[in-house]
Amino acid sequence: MTGKPVLDVRNLSVGYMTPRGFATAVDGVSLTIHEGETVGLVGESGCGKSTLAMAIMRLLGPGAYVTGGRIRIADRDIYRMGREELRQFRWTHVSMVFQSAMNVLNPVRTIGEQMVDTFRAHDPRMSKREAMERSAELLRIVRIDPARLGSFPHELSGGMRQRVVIAIAIAFKPKLVIMDEPTTALDVVVQRSILEQVMELQEQFGFSILFISHDITLVNRISNRVGVMYAGRLVEMSDSQLATEEPPLYHPYAMGLHRAIPTLDAGDDEISGIPGSPPVPLSMPPGCAFHPRCPYVRDACASIKPDLTRHGDYQIACHLTTDELRSFAHAD
């Protein structure tokens, strides 16, 4: 997949000013997403994946600062836009789906009113009736009965609410949709049906997706490429393991994640967690932030921060050699 880049993040760093000091949440992340591509981003709580998403949307809260790097969406730098320009740019070029639909939907107004408002905010010339028709059509696209336009958010099930939010997110045919744990709060069956639908919509409309989740299996299932974040850094960027034929290579952290979850496959595979806990921004270990938990730690790991380097088809930020990574990944 080598279309035009839709999202180009270069060396992005983001931090928070806290009462105890300046905490770096995203540390020099570079990421490119091409047209029509789905890129997954996996990581645990506090790894900076949500901060990265908010930075891309320029939705960082007070106290958060972009301290370096650059973000281009559809060849435009959103940090050089005026307020009005930014407002127009969001939703028409880039939109976002959050974990909780209730954060986006106003509980005291009907779905229809809210959708109409969104349309008319971006196109004031659109008549109310026209906006209503467009809203009904959108609901039909996400397989919700347009009669539901008169419903309040709490009258819909969790899955339906999230479908409404997705419908609003793609309403202006954006080039990029950022999804931050869009189905984490939902049951697995609903999760599956929504994600299958997202993939269909993507085929139909051709937008790119940045899919953020803690669930490495899920991300592998729906993404073309998968990035793994740890302690604010991208430690691995590779093709989805389901898309490639050759045996995959992993960063030691990603290896650990794969071994940490029981699977449904036959055989009583022994699982093992990664010892310790993810580091917190104000007490990052020096060198490779994963080294205190890494089973393959070397001398260099404690002092030198590894950068993403190419190992065959994979980009991995680790001091181990390709052969070592390969042998560890397939040791068992």
């Binding site: 397989r143 009965d145 099930s157 969790g158 899955g159 339906m160 049951d187 697995v188 069956v189 609903v190 999760q191 599956r192 049906s193 299958e196 639908q197 669930d215 299996t217 899920l218 299932r221 699977t263 449904l264």
Partner: peptide, 22 residues
């Protein structure tokens, strides 16, 4: 249905009625 929806193992052969959730 549960098994086929678990993240690793989606298979397209189970049809599901998505209009009802709860």
């Amino acid at each position: 249905l549960l098994l086929s929806s678990t993240s690793g193992a989606w298979s397209r052969d189970t049809k599901l009625n998505t209009s009802v959730e709860a």
